[in-house]
Design a binder for these strands. Structure first.
Lengths: 163, 163
DNA sequence: CTCGGTTTTGACCTTTACTGACATTATTAT
DNA sequence: ATAATAATGTCAGTAAAGGTCAAAACCGAG
């Protein structure tokens, strides 16, 4: 049958489809009320159904007059990046970073400036930390590097249509 | 969707933009009246939206014929910012990063795309790490964050010469 | 029936916005 | 001088969002 989850997903998809710019702004609380469920249920729907892998981006703000914004990304041209993200990103070594970033630049996903910025964050900056703080623990640096790479790639995904 | 805060910010920004010297003088009370809110609300807007990290300076005077002056800081070189970072290494908070980066974008030192990339590395990515690894030790995250910021800024500086 | 995955909920947390009482400072009239 | 008046500043408290996480409930395949 149809789960609550599915209904909420359908409802939101319909809203997005009938929106001119493929983006909607909702209030978590109000949707939860409409479907008579826990507010956190909405978060569940968002993380399982409206994530990047399914072609959506979610932005939000807390506090008074907070909101949740759902944006649909046209994913066609970005397939390679997405499929790369889907694979485990946790095993990225320093040497890999250069390769990936250069590839992005070659393919025209990012500019040369952007490529240099990305390398500054993932290579130079992390090397500084490495040598000044903990010579030993390379594994943590790997983790941080992967996280940065992943988030930057996601950002590249978004940028293609965000202006 | 739009908070009072946002409206006041927009209003003031518009005023500043249409001012020849990028500075305006207002009266707290009058603005509060116009927006029908508590005067202290204006102070809230000033501290959250018009602080140094966002590229503004606020001066004021109390008493009879008191005023509030908002000045947009012109930056023509990045060196001061970088050298500030050298000193304040571990004191850079997440919100500060966002402020600085937005400021740089506004001033045209970096593009909006570049700003988003930088924030992805310094905010989103590091937050992921923080929550998944060591909830306690924020100090190390601060260190990494400022190292990344510094290296990225230096990169921006260099790029002014290259290409 | 049982096991593994998916949904759903609820308790608790963090962030943001906003207000009001009270404090401080400057000007002006007496 | 002094008191009245007219500004802004501060801070703590409240309200109004959304976020997180673990545990319970559900559900389908074997």
């Amino acid at each position: 049958m149809f789960s609550l989850c599915d209904s909420i997903e359908k409802y939101l998809v319909k809203l997005i489809e009938s929106s001119p710019n493929s983006a909607i702004v909702i209030q978590r609380g109000r949707i939860a009320q409409e479907f008579d469920c826990a507010p956190s249920q909405i978060n569940y729907v968002l993380t399982t159904r409206f994530n990047v892998f399914r072609g959506f981006i979610v932005e939000s703000r807390r506090g008074g007059s907070g909101y949740v914004k759902i944006i649909r990304i046209p994913i066609d041209r970005l397939e390679p990046v997405v499929s790369y993200l889907e694979k485990a990103v946790s095993g990225i070594k320093e040497a890999d970073v250069e390769g990936i970033v250069n590839w992005l630049a070659r393919e025209g996903f990012i500019t040369n400036r952007e490529a240099r910025l990305m390398k500054a964050a993932m290579v130079t900056a992390l090397n500084n930390i490495q040598s000044s703080v903990n010579q030993q623990d390379h594994s943590q640096t790997h983790l941080i590097r992967s996280s940065i790479l992943k988030e930057m790639l996601m950002q590249v995904l978004r940028m293609d249509f965000l202006e």
